[in-house]
């Protein structure tokens, strides 16, 4: 009912918007990795930009604040956990953007076996193993390996998968043409529903007063 060109303008707008490169819902996301006992990660705005110098809070399962820091220039943070447990990382820019991520206890599994047994294993390893001929050279390696390999694989995997996970999050938040059109269709449908309801009401009320 506005200018006849308005619906056309909407479509052109959508098309132009989708054609220009970084089109995405404007929201804050948080990416968290666990490496050893260190919980680190960064926040990012979908569509570009990192939240710099914003509040990072880490809470345990009981809701106690364990850490209260700020992100660096890359929107990143790092924190060393006291023990493997479930934690919640909260990122709050203070201007209405807020996001959270959960870190489960099992993400520390590779880490504990790496950090605790490694020094323990090193000490007794040199003792009994050295006595056995043939095992001298390989001894420490052989004992440490199982735990260390697991931790190393964990770390390598996390490093390799990080860009993939980020890309997935970004694509999840991308606006899709079909979704937008679906939304517009929904509004048209609502308008139709409203008009129908009004028409019925008028019919029931009989001839126009």
């Amino acid at each position: 009912m506005i200018g006849r060109s308005t619906p056309l303008a909407v479509i052109v707008w959508v098309a132009v918007g989708l054609a220009s490169a970084p089109v995405a819902a404007h929201s804050l996301k948080l990416f968290v990795t666990v490496d050893g006992m260190v919980v680190s990660g960064h926040g990012f705005f979908v569509g570009g930009g990192r939240p710099q110098g914003v509040v990072v809070k880490i809470r345990d399962a009981d809701g106690r604040d364990l850490h209260d820091g700020r992100t660096d220039a890359n929107g990143a943070f790092a924190w060393t956990a006291p023990a493997p447990a479930a934690y919640t990382v909260l990122l709050d820019t203070g201007d209405g953007h807020f996001t959270r991520a959960e870190v489960t206890a099992d993400r520390f599994v590779g880490a504990t076996s790496a950090s605790t047994p490694a020094p323990v294993a090193a000490a007794p390893a040199s003792g009994p193993e050295v006595a056995k001929p043939g095992a001298v050279a390989r001894g420490p390696d052989a004992i440490v390996s199982a735990a260390e390999i697991e931790a190393a694989v964990d770390r390598a995997l996390a490093r390799r998968l990080q860009p993939l996970v980020e890309a997935q999050e970004r694509s999840e938040a991308r606006l899709r043409f079909a979704d937008i059109m679906g939304g517009i269709g929904m509004i048209v449908g609502l308008a139709g529903l409203g008009a129908w309801g009004m028409a019925r009401r008028r019919e029931r009320e009989g001839p126009r007063a």
């Binding site: 909407v10 959508v14 509004i187």
Partner: peptide, 12 residues
Amino acid sequence: PKTAILAALFFV
């Protein structure tokens, strides 16, 4: 109609 058109415009 105009309410719906502006709602759609706002949505997009």
